[in-house]
Design a protein around this nucleic acid. Structure first.
Lengths: 144, 144
DNA sequence: CTCTTATGTAACCATTATGGTTGCCTTAAA
DNA sequence: TTTAAGGCAACCATAATGGTTACATAAGAG
C-alpha cells in the first residue's frame, strides 16, 4: 500500500453506503462519519463512480448510493478504483547502467514487486464489501 | 509497500554486496552503482547492520560486507529491516466515533490490512538474496 | 418558474515525508 | 601520524497529501 489514506477512506465510504443501503446519501453526511471535508469525500467518490461502484445523483435530494449489491464488490475492486498504480519505490530509482548490477537490478526488482503486489491483491480479492458490512454489525451488536 | 525507495535501494545494496561477496565495499562504491549520495547508502546500511544482515568495518580500507550467505537472507528479512511499520493509510484516520460506522470501521480495516500485508510478506519470504544474485547473472550473460 | 440543495472540479495552502547534501567526529589501517 | 573510511546530526528542496474555499452546473421542491 501507499501510505495515503485513499483506500482506507474509500472503504469507510462504501461501508457507510452499505449501511445506508438504498438511500441517496449526500457527501456531507459521509464526511461527518469520516470526520473530514465533503470535498475530500467527493474526490474519492468521483473515482468510485468512474469505476461503476457507486451511482451519483446530482441536484436537490441527491447524493450517492451503491451501484451494485455489496456481495458483488471485492476490496480489490475498490483498491484498483482509488489507488494509483503502485510504483513500488522505483519512481526515483535510476541506477547507474554502466554498472553490471545497476544495469539489471531494476527489472529484477520490478518482477519481485509484481509478485508481492499480487500476493497482497489476492487477499483483497477474497473479501467483499458485504463481509465488511456484516462485521460492522457483529462487532457493534444492537445497532441497526 | 510505501512509496519510498528504501526497500528498493536496500535490495540494490545487498545485491551489490552479494556481487562483490567477500570484499569490504565502501559506501561510495555502492553509491556509484545506485547513483546517489554515499550518505543515503550509509543510512540504509545502518539499518541493515542493526538487523545483522551486513557487517561494517570502520577506518581505512574498511567498508561493508554481507554478514551471512545470500542463501540465508530472505527479502522479507530486508523488508522488515528497512521499512518502517506500515501504517496502511490510517495514520491520519480518525473517524467520528459517534457514528456507528465510524466507531467500528477502524478495527475492521486494521484486520483487513493485516491480512493483505501478510499476503505480500509471504511472497517476499519466498525469495532469497541468492536468487536475486543469480538472476543478476542470468539476465546479463557473459558478465562476471 | 425559481429557490435550494446537491455534485463536479479547479485552485490554493499547510503539513509532512523523502532524499540529497554538507559538515564534523570517530575509528583504524597503512 | 596521516589518511580513508563509517556514524550521525543538521539542513534544504521537492513532492505528495489532505484540507479548504470558491464557483459552475444540475435537478428536485415548492
Amino acid at each position: 500500500m501507499t501510505g495515503n489514506s485513499r483506500f482506507a477512506v474509500s472503504l469507510h465510504i462504501l461501508a457507510y453506503l452499505a449501511y445506508r443501503y438504498g438511500a441517496s446519501v449526500p457527501s456531507a453526511e459521509i464526511a461527518a462519519s469520516v470526520d473530514t471535508n465533503p470535498v475530500v469525500i467527493r474526490r474519492l467518490l468521483s473515482a468510485l463512480v468512474k469505476a461503476r461502484l457507486v451511482k451519483a445523483q446530482k441536484g436537490a435530494s441527491g447524493g450517492f448510493s451503491l451501484a451494485t449489491a455489496p456481495e458483488s464488490v471485492s476490496l480489490l475492486d475498490v483498491y484498483r478504483a482509488v489507488e494509483p498504480q503502485p510504483d513500488n519505490g522505483l519512481r526515483n530509482f535510476s541506477p547507474n547502467h554502466k554498472c553490471p548490477v545497476g544495469a539489471k537490478i531494476e527489472s529484477i526488482l520490478q518482477a519481485i514487486f509484481l509478485k508481492a503486489q499480487a500476493g497482497m491483491e489476492a487477499e483483497l480479492a477474497d473479501v467483499t464489501l458485504a463481509q465488511v458490512h456484516s462485521q460492522l454489525h457483529s462487532v457493534c451488536p444492537g445497532k441497526k
